[in-house]
Design a protein around this nucleic acid. Structure first.
Length: 199
DNA sequence: GGAGCGATGTCCT
DNA sequence: GGACATCGCTCCG
């Protein structure tokens, strides 16, 4: 069970488009019932603060989005469409809003556990496990009540990101998915050619 | 394999 | 009351 360095707070201090691309290839680790559920980050989206009409923070600080205005390296988990959770990591200095949405992982170990959490009978199609922001949260048992506001730079959180030395060969940029405002900006980033990138 | 659509809770105007 | 950073199902080819 390999352990690698945890990404430190400084990693998340920069603007979201920079941090987003830098997160590609890193490994999300979730401690769950004594296991390590891990997946490589293969697709992300950047959301800016007050100047980004598509961002939750566009209209200013509220109860829901306050984590994004806080210090970098914290989880922002929100509930969407009445049934799904999505995971972001805050970036930029405290007081400045910004975040990176995790859209897809390449599952690495404990695929059986992920399938069970997803309500799937088997791991026959691993793309159904963690390809999509709602799916990856369900596969890693990430939800708002337990994870919103936790520090992802600490192993003690049970949710953190490690660097195992993998570096993507190429990154592709495209418009963000499922938004109406500022829909043309190429702020979605993925590892080129990776089969776990969502549609 | 792709377009269309319903499910369903929370947030903010 | 409308919108929503989604998903999985149906129906059609």
């Amino acid at each position: 069970m390999a352990k690698f360095p945890v990404l430190p707070r400084e990693f998340y201090l920069d603007p979201p488009d920079i941090v987003a691309q830098r997160l590609l290839g890193k490994v999300l680790v979730r401690r769950y019932e004594g296991k390590r559920l891990t997946g490589r980050i293969v697709e992300v989206e950047a959301y800016f603060g007050l100047e980004d009409p598509a961002a939750h923070t566009f209209a200013g600080k509220t109860e829901r989005n306050q984590v994004l205005f806080g210090p970098p390296g914290f989880a922002y988990v929100y509930f969407i469409y009445g049934m799904h959770f999505c995971l972001n990591i805050s970036c930029e200095p405290e007081g400045q809003a910004g975040g990176v949405l995790l859209r897809a992982l390449e599952p690495l170990v404990e695929l059986r556990t992920m399938a069970r959490l997803r309500g799937l009978a088997s791991t026959a199609n691993p793309r159904l496990l963690t390809s999509g922001p709602g799916r990856l949260c369900q596969a890693l048992d990430i939800e708002r009540e337990t994870h919103n506001g936790i520090d992802v730079t600490s192993r003690r959180s049970g949710l953190h990101v490690e660097d195992d030395g993998f570096a993507p060969l190429a990154i592709v940029a495209s418009p963000r998915i499922g938004i109406r405002k500022a829909a043309e900006r190429p702020l979605r980033f993925a590892i080129a050619g990776n089969r776990f990138v969502s549609k």
